[in-house]
Simulated scan of single mutants.
Amino acid sequence: MKLFKSIRIFGLMALMVLTMAGTAFAGSQDFDLENGTGHTIAYIYLSPSDENAWVYQDELGPNDVLRPGESIFLTFSPRDDVRYWDIKVVYDNGKEDVWEDLDLYRIFNITIRPGGTVSIEST
């Protein structure tokens, strides 16, 4: 009887560990992007740093913009296990800025600044 109880407790503990591990890794690249540029952003593009094309295009949607001081929470598919990403924004005046090689496994908040500079909060 004690053996059965021990096995059941061990099984429950193993299940809890697996559940917590799945939660820790799911969405680990998700982050807040804050517009600290002083300009309205019309488009946001994301791509793994080793790609030559923008994989995620127009993350704001067709009718949205990101005004100065506003932020957006960007989420990733669980299939996206890439660590380093590039971000490109296009302002409402057509000018662009790009930030490269951002470690989204460590970053949870990015404040983009004019001229391609950035403030990062990471773990």
Rank of each mutant, 00 (worst) to 15 (best):
G115Y: 01
G38M: 07
D86W: 02
E96Q: 15
E51R: 14
T40H: 11
L46E: 11
F31V: 05
W85K: 00
E100A: 11
N93H: 08
I120G: 06
V55A: 14
S71H: 01
L60W: 04
A24M: 12
L60H: 05
V55K: 15
D50N: 15
K5S: 14
L33T: 00
D86E: 01
E51P: 00
R113L: 15
D58H: 11
A21H: 05
T111R: 13
R83Q: 15
L74G: 03
M16Y: 10
P62M: 02
T111Q: 10
A14C: 04
P114C: 02
D101E: 13
G11S: 15
G22W: 10
I72F: 03
G116V: 03
L18Y: 04
A53D: 14
M20D: 07
G94I: 07
G38C: 08
R67V: 01
F31G: 00
T37I: 01
Y91Q: 03
S71F: 08
G11N: 13
D80Q: 09
D86T: 00
P78R: 02
K88N: 09
W54Q: 06
S47W: 05
G61S: 07
G38K: 08
E96V: 11
V82P: 03
Q57N: 08
D103Q: 04
E96T: 14
F108L: 10
V65Y: 05
K5W: 12
Y105D: 10
M1A: 15
G116E: 02
V89F: 09
A14Y: 07
A24H: 06
V90K: 13
M13R: 12
P48E: 11
G115R: 03
D92Q: 12
F31M: 03
S122T: 03
I7Q: 06
E59D: 07
M1S: 14
L102Y: 04
S28K: 12
L66V: 00
F76A: 02
A21Y: 08
N109W: 06
F31N: 04
R8Q: 13
G61Y: 01
T40L: 07
Y45M: 06
N63Q: 11
V98I: 10
R106H: 07
S122P: 00
T23Q: 14
S49E: 00
V90S: 11
R67G: 01
A14Q: 08
G38R: 06
S71C: 01
Y45C: 05
L12V: 09
E100F: 02
G116W: 00
N109A: 07
